[in-house]
């Protein structure tokens, strides 16, 4: 044959199919994440919708009494939302300033050696199981607080807020520090070159330039505080009540119930698959999911802005 010496460059049989099969398998794995989101939405929505067929969404969102299992039953979610806000507010009061200052220390003041020790140590705060934090709040933090506040209840919002605040410090500090580290050194040099001190460089150049990264970390940390479950269930108790804003001491020194704690209480009780109480669980879950999901999206959007600012 004349073309006996021509190289055979044709595809080997079956190779294409095999390559395609692998690609398909990996794609299904990646698709699973979207299926998970879909499953969460459908699961929550399914039972929540049957719940809202019996209890109007307006009554749910504006009702001021939460009593799902005891007669007379009432499904007003406001006490749970305010309870969640109390914890979130308290945790934010600790984690936002502490996390930001920590990030400034790590990004601007710490030497490389100190940073290499301190950073992983701070990350440990986020690695301790939340059930352990809840236990710490209940048996160590609350007794310590009772020295200062003799009227504090065994279960109280203050100890839970403090412990949740500590737990979310790394979220604020690590994302904020990333943003600060991505501020170009040329801006710091411009400031130092004009005779600025480290304090001035940090506060007038670095923090303003990384403000969207800081904002993103704040939103994410708040979202985490809102979704935090075990620490608040164990330490803040299970007293659904509308908080009285005129009495801040009463708000923090007494027991409250968050959305998450109410879900755990219902989940741990023997509510049956067909009862209204069981379905209310999904309505609360849906509310929680929507709030945190929106916050995560906003945080992602804000974060993408600082990535754009400095290519």
């Amino acid at each position: 044959m004349s073309d006996a010496t021509a190289p055979d460059l044709s595809r080997r049989s079956g190779q294409n199919t095999r390559e395609f099969a692998y690609r398909a398998v990996f794609f299904v794995c990646a698709l699973l994440s979207i299926l998970t989101t879909l499953a969460i939405v459908l699961t929550l929505l399914g039972d929540a919708l049957t719940f809202f067929a019996e209890v109007s969404p307006i009554a749910f969102l504006t009702g001021t009494t939460w009593s799902p299992a005891n007669d007379p039953v009432s499904f007003g979610v406001l006490p749970l939302i305010t309870g969640t806000l109390v914890i979130t507010f308290g945790a934010a009061a600790i984690a936002l300033p502490v996390g930001l200052l920590t990030a400034i220390y790590l990004a601007e003041y710490a030497s490389d050696r100190v940073r290499s020790v301190l950073k992983p140590a701070i990350e440990v705060l986020a690695g301790v199981p939340t059930v352990v934090y809840g236990y710490f709040a209940l048996v160590y933090v609350t007794p310590a607080l009772s020295v200062v506040f003799p009227t504090i209840s065994t279960f109280n919002a203050l100890s839970a807020s403090i412990i949740v605040g500590i737990m979310i410090i790394p979220m604020v500090s690590s994302i904020s520090e990333d943003a600060m580290s991505s501020v170009p050194d040329s801006l710091r040099e411009a400031s130092y070159g004009l005779g600025a001190t480290r304090f001035t460089v940090s506060t007038s150049v670095v923090v303003p330039a990384s403000i969207s990264g800081i904002a993103s970390s704040y939103i994410l940390a708040l979202s985490r505080a809102i979704g935090e479950t075990m620490a608040v269930t164990i330490a803040a108790g299970n007293t659904p009540r509308l908080v009285d804003l005129t009495d801040p001491a009463g708000v923090f020194l007494n027991s409250i119930q968050t959305m998450t704690a109410a879900m755990v209480q219902l989940g741990a009780s023997d509510v049956t698959g067909q009862s209204l109480a069981y379905r209310s669980l999904f309505a609360v879950g849906l509310t929680l999911f929507v709030i945190t999901f929106l916050m995560n999206l906003i945080s992602e959007w804000v974060a993408s802005r600082y990535r754009e600012e400095y290519r």
């Binding site: 989101t37 929550l44 979704g227 935090e228 479950t229 998450t260 669980l281 879950g285 995560n296 992602e300």
Partner: peptide, 15 residues
């Protein structure tokens, strides 16, 4: 995926 990482664990419990 980034958003799923931020969904509260109690919601996964409901799932």
């Amino acid at each position: 995926i980034a958003n799923l990482a931020g969904v509260p664990s109690v919601v996964y419990g409901l799932l």
